[in-house]
Each structure stands twice: as C-alpha cells, then as structure tokens.
C-alpha cells in the first residue's frame, strides 16, 4: 500500500481539537469472559482514530459499547460532553453515531437506494397520513432525501447498482453500500468495523480513498477497526491498541509501531 503513504495525515489538527468521545475505565463482561477490561481512550473531533489488536481483543465489543448496543458493567462513556448511562442504539443514532459492521449487515431484501434511504429515517418528518397519500410533506421528504442519497451514491461511485437488491451484489460492493447507508445519516461520529476485510487490493484502495474523502470533505470523525497495518498507518491520526480486552498502547501510528508491547502482541500473528 505504498501509494497511500503520500497522503498527509491530520494529526496536527486532531491533537488540538476538542474531545468528541471519551471512554473511561470501561469494563464489559459476558458471563465469565471479560471482553473489555478497564479501557480508557478518547476520540477528538475531526480525527481518524484506529482501534487495532489481535482477534478477540475486544475491538468490535468496544464499538458496540459506544453505540449503545452493549452496556458495559463498569466505566463511563462521554459523548459530546454528556456522560450517559444505558442508552438504546437508536438514541445513539439520533445523536449522530453511525456505523458499519464487520459482517455486512445490509437489508438484504431491499435495493441499494432503499438501503441508503433508511439512513435518512431520522430526518424524515411527514406523518403516516401524508405517507399514505404520498403527497405534500411526504413527497417533499422523499424527493429531498432522495437528492441527498444520490449525492452519496455519486460520491461512492455506485450509480450503476442503485436499483439492485443488495443481496445480489458482490461482497466488496456490499461493504461500499453499507458505508453509503451510514453516511446518509450525516453522522458526527462514524464507526467502521473492518471496512476492508475480504477486499482485493483495488477495492481496498478505493475504500481508503473514500474514508479519507469523508473525513476531509464532511469533517466526519471516524473510529476505524482494521487489521491491515499498512492501511492503519496511512489513514489514522492516532491508534489505540487492544489485547485481551486491555489497552496496551495509544498514540500516533509511529509511536505505536515502535512500541515493544505492540510488537510482542503482533508477533506470530500474520498480517
């Protein structure tokens, strides 16, 4: 991924900007298994923050805590200056947190366009009676949000598959549609769980470009889980490293790369 290294990072900007999300001493257990063990880190506004670590380190669980799908037994999560207790995922969504999934979680029976349009749900206001008639506010909603979705479709270069049921799309494209659906929410914080897993080199490069563009053009803060170290080093402003549910390192890509604990953790794990 040498082509990527030319892209400048935004670390200078990120280190000075305010904290969007702070995770403090979070512990999450499933019965006897401690998936996350006293982890603290923060995400600054406008940065790309990578979360890395070997399989089973607790990365996905961390995202699930952030968007309210799991509720940690201990610790605090503060988002936009507000510390929350238990919250439902749709509340997190309404506060501007969007995500994609490690295993694609698209709505299989719907077209690409409809999938992306679901991302606009929270922004639509016409009541069910207008929707029955599909007139007035309901039609205005449909047209206005369709326009926005079409912009995202152009941006991610998926015009050709607009009307295709997503179940029929190849894996790489499904991942891209999933990103589109998350972007349709106009999130302040975008959580990406291994957005490039299972992709070929070309698809990976496209996806990297999209992630950087999203971050630059929309100013979206991104938390990214990724196994490809080249990608992580190129994209991210700061990296947090988890192993067996604990944080073992946190810092710029260069710091992390030379950290002995990280090197040990990844020893024997092929990437």
């Amino acid at each position: 991924m040498s082509s990527m290294s030319a892209i400048p990072t935004m670390s200078a900007l990120a280190s000075t900007s305010e904290i969007l999300l702070a995770v403090e001493n979070v512990t999450l257990r499933f019965g006897g298994v401690t998936a996350i063990n006293g982890v603290s880190f923060d995400i600054r506004k406008g940065e790309i923050r990578a979360i890395i670590g070997p399989n089973g380190a607790g990365k996905t669980s961390m995202l699930n805590c952030i968007n309210g799908f799991y509720h940690p037994q201990e610790g605090r999560i503060t988002y936009k200056g507000e510390t929350r207790q238990r919250m439902r995922p749709y509340v997190a969504a309404s506060q501007g947190i969007a995500r994609t999934f490690q295993n694609v979680a698209l709505f299989k029976g719907m077209t690409t366009l409809d999938n992306i349009m679901t991302g606009r749900t929270l922004k639509m206001s016409a009541n069910i009676f207008w929707q029955m008639l599909r007139l007035g506010p309901a039609l205005a909603d449909e047209i206005r949000h369709r326009e926005y979705c079409e912009e995202i479709i152009d941006f991610l270069e998926i015009e050709a598959i607009r009307k295709t049921p997503v179940g029929r799309l190849p894996y790489g494209l499904q991942k891209r549609v999933e990103l589109a659906r998350a972007l349709a929410m106009q999130p302040d914080l975008l959580l990406l769980d291994e957005p490039m897993a299972g992709m070929n080199l070309e698809e990976k490069q496209d996806m990297c470009r999209f992630i950087i563009d999203v971050n630059k053009t929309f100013g979206t803060t991104i938390a990214l889980i990724e196994h490809d170290m080249g990608v992580v080093m190129d994209l991210s402003d700061r990296v947090v490293v988890l192993e067996y549910g604990r944080k073992i390192a946190d810092g710029t890509p260069d710091d992390v790369k030379s950290d002995q604990k990280v090197i040990d953790a990844y020893l024997g794990v092929s990437h």
Binding site: P89, A92, F107, M110, T118, M124, D141
Partner: peptide, 20 residues
Amino acid sequence: NIGRQWMAIRDMDIAAELMG
C-alpha cells in the same frame, strides 16, 4: 419511509435499530 422501516426491521433488526 414507514415501509422502509418495516423492511429494515424484517431484514436485520439490529442494524435497523442502529440506523435510528
């Protein structure tokens, strides 16, 4: 809008909830 919500719940209720 409501129809898309129904189908989203049908196809993947967890993801639907995370979409708001």
